[in-house]
Design a protein around this nucleic acid. Structure first.
Lengths: 344, 344
DNA sequence: CGTTAGCAGTCGGCGGTTGCGAGTGCTAAA
DNA sequence: TTTAGCACTCGCAACCGCCGACTGCTAACG
């Protein structure tokens, strides 16, 4: 059977209402919502069709209909109207984007807070350590027992770590800096081979004792878990929605949110530049929940993501509009900054 | 009326059982748990006394008794037995303490994860930026448009921030470093006055254009919100306890956990070196919940805290034993490290 | 005077019943 | 093809009575 225009209108109307109320939608109510003037009986017939086509289902035989995941999918992929950001939303987001981008991690985490506040859903931000090339390495003297290793990556990110090592001198550290940079510049963490390590050791000469601690630090800074960060804000919002009044459902969502590493993986795998929507039944997403997210990329590399998790019937248009605005603004700024600062 | 020894035994027994079951405790059950051989009627009389003294209360007139906050307080402050850490718990904690302490923040957050896992409650770790004196300042060249500001505080913590400023040269940065250090060393954020700022500007000479961005960065690094971090792990654990099956109660707890700044304040205000216990009714703690935490100090300054939040009837002895072991081990290590590295 | 047995009273929780109302599917007529 | 009408289904809330756990009280005992 075909999805006629009228069926689409009815489906859209059902989803709209379901997003508002969270309750099954009956045929009578629909007649008052669609432009067509139809009787409830006709709508019932259409709804019956939509059900057999898999767009709707009845929670029990004498209740209204609820959209299935398939129905929701269709809705978000075409039926849904756009959403105009309110003045208030715009001003909050703009203020946020005025942050200096050097503080990327903090910015993302702050964004999650704001996003949760604006949308009334739980917001997630993830920060992923990209497999970056090393651009510059520097070792700076702190005291005899320690120095600070500074790594500048090809995306402009600067990472630092305090390294404890005996007998540091300014002199030795200069040598160390030079040999590290010569040996490692242009490599990713995975590309640091044994020969590279030996090269560095040799070049370091009497600073050789510092090479191993330094390399360990480099590895940690670039390594997979190094700077991974996940922020979840507004968990309490989740419990405002009836679908999560059942403690077990709420628990299953919270369990997913605890899997921080998996979250990073999952959210940074999405398509950049457009909304990614995962609903329950489509991935590991827990029952009745839905996740909307935008990855954030810098020159083609995904470095993080920001998203929202809520009931499957969340207000997609609003959420998408907000995420879109923030993500695209941020991506632009990040990439602009990058090109500007990279002309060495 | 006085709290006799027998009353204490009965109270302890009631709390022990209540911690296990979460249900009101009846007089008959108690007779089988205490060493004294008493009839249930006698126990009832004693329980009636305990109730009028405010240690117990009845949720409704035909049910057993439940300890009040006062009853719990008395329990945790004397009646409770010690808890022996199991081999498994010890080995996990020891492994954790083997982390390098330079990674203090990451360590705390990891500790929260482990703590939640071991105790089966929700764990909280907070990191507070102490009002530190500036020990050393250094500006390191990144490229023409930016440099890295490195701050070493009197507690040995090293903080960094990328600063964007036009026309950086290695030369200028050396001057900047020198004048910043001369002008700011030994001060806390609050003590940086206008005269200090003018001194720095003057000393900086032709690097004067870099002073303002640099000072702004110093301020951010030392400022109140600068590096505040709160990690909450194992929220899903909370929902395993019947006292939080009621979504509203769970929500009120989650709302408290969202107040990250307030959490930092509250948890770092506690007495170091011993368990701090706050129960519902005693502070802002939400209904039916209880928080146990240990602040972590470095040379007298509280720099963070680790704790556990759970139902008021949580297994205090186990939680305290674990937190105690971790907090004292960490404090020791931190203070040791500090003295060793500070002899400039 | 402390302790104990016994008994009446209280009350929450549980299972079964009932009535209500929303919403459906079907049928027959327009 | 649409519509009106009607019988039917079923979740839900209210209600009821019963059971059991536990208490408070009283009176007797050592």
């Amino acid at each position: 059977m075909e999805l006629t225009d009228r069926k689409k209108r009815i489906l859209k109307s059902i989803v709209d209402e379901y997003i508002k109320s969270g309750e099954p939608v009956g045929s009578k109510y629909i007649t008052s919502q669609i432009p067509d003037s139809l009787s409830s009986a006709t709508v019932r017939n259409e709804m019956s069709d939509l059900e057999s086509m898999g767009y709707l289902k009845q929670p029990h035989s004498s209740a209204g209909r609820v959209p299935t995941t398939k129905g929701m999918r269709t809705y978000v992929e075409g039926l849904m109207e756009g959403y105009k950001l309110s003045l208030e939303e715009l001003s909050v987001l703009n203020e946020l984007l005025d942050f200096k981008v050097g503080e990327f991690g903090k910015l993302l985490s702050e964004a999650a807070r704001v996003m949760s506040h604006i949308t009334n859903y739980t917001a997630i931000s993830v920060l992923k350590p990209p497999a970056e090339r090393i651009d510059k390495v520097k070792a700076v003297y702190i005291d005899e027992g320690s120095f600070l290793l500074i790594l500048r990556c090809s995306d402009g990110q600067v990472k630092t770590k305090t390294v404890f090592a005996p007998d540091c001198t300014e002199e030795k550290l200069r040598t160390l800096s030079r040999s590290l940079e010569e040996g490692l510049a242009g490599l990713t963490a995975a590309e640091i081979s044994l020969t590279a390590v030996l090269d560095v050791s040799e070049a370091a000469g009497d600073a050789g004792g510092l090479v191993n601690p330094a390399l360990r630090a480099v590895n940690e800074l670039l390594g997979a878990e190094a700077e991974e960060d996940v922020q979840v804000r507004g968990i309490n919002k989740l419990l405002s929605y009836p679908e999560f009044y059942d403690v077990n459902k709420a628990k299953s969502v919270l369990e997913v949110l605890e899997q921080k590493h998996a979250l990073v993986e999952r959210l940074t795998e999405g398509m950049p530049g457009r909304p990614n929507i995962v609903m329950s039944g489509e991935g590991l997403t827990p029952e009745d929940a839905s996740v909307v997210f935008y990855p954030i990329t810098v020159s083609g590399q995904t470095v993080g993501a920001i998203g929202v998790i809520g009931p499957k019937r969340m207000d997609y248009k609003k959420v998408i509009a907000n995420l879109e605005y923030f993500a695209s603004g941020l991506t632009e700024e990040l990439n602009g900054k990058e090109e500007g600062g990279n002309d060495k």
